[in-house]
């Protein structure tokens, strides 16, 4: 794996936050926006930059669901498991996705194409059950449609 460093672009973003109080979470957001996850090397550099122990950074990363420690797949599938979606059959859809891709929630497929996340409410309960792949929202998804939707992304490769 390539060695990740804080590049100048990211450095600039971080400088903006460097001297503010309570900046750690916002800095982690910037890093994750930039890389898609929080690489360990960057946490090490961050620890020196902010003069806080690495353990403090990791305790925050691991507490919040949003931060990831490993690179995400090329396409992120976010399946909503909010109450409305659950009532309208999101669990069935989840099983179908798991079955087709052969992964559990929170995992990435071996080819790195898909990452499956179960999220709590995407805020469009009227469309339940809802699935989001990258930034595209699929509303009222049925179990029978999943294979078709996923195959579109596979064909693009």
């Amino acid at each position: 794996m390539e060695h990740k460093k804080i590049n100048p672009e990211l450095g600039q973003l971080l400088n903006k936050w460097k001297d503010k109080e309570g900046n750690l979470i916002m800095i982690l957001h910037e890093i994750q926006n930039h890389h898609g996850y929080v690489p360990r090397e960057l946490s090490l550099e961050l620890s020196k930059m902010l003069d806080v122990p690495l353990a403090r950074i990791y305790e925050v990363i691991t507490f919040y669901n949003y931060f990831k420690l490993s690179p995400p797949g090329k396409h992120r599938i976010a399946l909503c498991m909010g109450t409305a979606c659950y009532l309208r059959g999101a669990a069935v859809v989840l099983n179908e996705i798991k079955g087709i891709l052969g992964i559990e929630e929170g995992q990435t497929t071996k080819d790195g194409l898909f990452h499956l996340d179960v999220v709590r409410c995407l805020g469009c309960c009227g469309l339940a059950p809802v699935m989001m792949i990258d930034n595209k929202v699929y509303g009222k998804v049925k179990k029978s449609e999943i294979a078709d939707i996923l195959s579109k992304y596979i064909k693009e490769e």
Binding site: E21, G22, M26, L28, H29, R120
Partner: peptide, 25 residues
């Protein structure tokens, strides 16, 4: 603006304060 990071408990006010302070919520 301060962003949350996906923790339901941070809606509780004292947890929210910890989170804005950059700590575990």
């Amino acid at each position: 603006i301060r962003l949350g990071a996906g923790a339901f408990v941070c809606g509780e006010e004292t947890a929210l304060i910890s989170s804005i302070e950059g700590k575990r919520g």
